[in-house]
């Protein structure tokens, strides 16, 4: 099941794989910071500052706003 991540849809904490990216300046920066298609990412939305999402890539932790993920299509891999 593919899940489009945006501020309306709540993501559960867990591992996801980046399936595809729509072009935008934020998405371009995310790819340069390690969220290119095919990369694995741990997403934590619970108990985070309002409107922010904690991402853990193979390069460590990132903090992004919910809307920054709108151009990413994420595929759930493992949600505990």
């Amino acid at each position: 099941m593919k899940q489009r991540a945006n501020w309306r849809e709540k993501l559960r904490n867990g591992w996801y794989r980046v399936a595809s990216i729509q072009p935008s300046v934020e998405a371009a920066r995310l790819t340069e910071m390690g969220l290119a298609p095919g990369s694995r990412v741990w997403i934590a939305t619970q108990a985070m500052p309002f409107g922010l999402i904690y991402l853990h890539t193979s390069d460590g932790a990132l903090i992004v706003r919910e809307e920054e993920l709108k151009d990413l299509t994420l595929e759930p891999e493992y949600t505990p």
């Binding site: 935008s24 340069e32 390690g34 290119a36 298609p37 990369s39």
Partner: peptide
């Protein structure tokens, strides 16, 4: 460079990098 080109370049590079 436009965002499209940036993403395309980064994605291509990441395939090698991963």
């Amino acid at each position: 460079e436009s965002p499209d080109t940036r993403i395309a370049r980064s994605t291509a590079l990441y395939r090698r990098v991963r």
